[in-house]
Deep mutational scan, measured.
Amino acid sequence: MQYKLVINGKTLKGETTTKAVDAETAEKAFKQYANDNGVDGVWTYDDATKTFTVTE
């Protein structure tokens, strides 16, 4: 399945996608991506759209 990440950071904004077997695996990949880019915020997930959002 394909999952999307929407980033609403202080210095980084945008979107990225990943393919993963489940939401938990996608979340780990997205959190690593956010961490690598210095984004630390509040996470939400919408199962209907398979979209994670992180807001600083």
Rank of each mutant, 00 (worst) to 15 (best):
M1L: 12
N37P: 01
G14Q: 14
D36K: 10
K19W: 15
K10P: 08
N35Y: 14
E56A: 07
M1Q: 14
V39C: 04
V54D: 00
K28P: 02
D40Q: 13
T44V: 10
N8P: 03
D22E: 04
W43D: 00
F30C: 02
A26R: 00
E56L: 09
L12T: 09
G38D: 07
E56N: 05
T53W: 08
K19M: 15
L5T: 01
T25P: 03
T55D: 07
D22F: 04
Q32T: 09
K10I: 14
K50G: 05
D47V: 10
V21Y: 13
D46W: 03
N35W: 14
T25A: 14
E56F: 07
A34E: 01
E24C: 12
E27L: 15
T16S: 09
K13F: 11
D40V: 14
L12H: 11
T16F: 15
T17M: 11
F52S: 00
Q32G: 05
K13P: 06
L12I: 13
V6H: 05
K50P: 00
M1P: 08
E56W: 11
E27S: 09
F30H: 02
F52W: 07
T16M: 15
I7C: 04
V42Q: 09
E56D: 08
N8D: 10
Y33H: 05
T17A: 07
Y45N: 00
Y33V: 05
D46N: 09
A48M: 12
F52Q: 00
K28N: 08
Y3N: 01
G41E: 01
V39N: 03
E27Y: 15
Q2N: 12
Y3D: 01
T49P: 02
T18S: 05
A26S: 02
E24V: 12
N35L: 15
T55V: 09
L12V: 12
T18K: 06
D40R: 14
I7V: 09
K50Q: 09
K50N: 08
G14D: 09
A34D: 00
T53A: 04
Y45R: 02
L5A: 03
V39T: 03
N8Q: 11
A23F: 14
G9H: 08
E56Q: 09
T55Q: 06
L5D: 00
A29L: 14
T25F: 06
I7K: 01
D36H: 08
N8C: 12
D47F: 08
T11D: 10
I7R: 01
T53G: 03
Q2M: 15
Y3T: 01
Q32S: 08
G9Y: 07
K13C: 12
Y45V: 02
W43T: 01
K50Y: 11
